[in-house]
């Protein structure tokens, strides 16, 4: 996400929190929560696609559950899957990186700055 302006707004207004606001006593907890959320989103994406895929395959009588269980990718496909897996991992763990980038953010309680 690109960085937005923080602190005082251009013309009065409310002071905005920075890019990495902390809501728990320990910023690691914030990162953990974000990881769980990201993981949940990624999991739903996979579930949604899997449901669609299985439905399409079943409707056309192409693949059985046993065939799915026995599936192994070829080399090219395995390479593509690895690239996708690395993006998946990056997305989930992104907030650990932000712990470093947002090190200057002061811990804050609920709804505080």
């Amino acid at each position: 996400m690109s960085k937005g302006p923080s602190g005082q707004t251009p013309e009065g207004g409310a002071p905005l929190v920075g890019d990495y606001p902390v809501y728990f006593n320990d910023p690691v907890q914030d990162a953990m929560m974000n990881m769980i959320l990201e993981l949940s989103a990624q999991l739903w994406m996979s579930m949604d696609r899997m449901y669609a895929l299985e439905d399409l395959l079943a409707r056309q009588g192409i693949v059985t559950a046993a065939a799915l269980d026995g599936y192994r990718p070829d080399a090219e496909r395995a390479k593509a899957l690895r690239a996708r897996r690395e993006r998946f991992t990056h997305d989930i763990l992104r907030d650990l990186k932000s712990l470093t980038e947002g090190a200057a953010s002061a811990p804050a309680g609920p709804g505080t700055e």
Partner: peptide, 14 residues
């Protein structure tokens, strides 16, 4: 209050 400070509604309180 949350919206103004944490969701970029800079002038919401105005």
């Amino acid at each position: 209050h949350f919206d103004s400070r944490h969701n970029g509604e800079a002038y919401g309180d105005d």
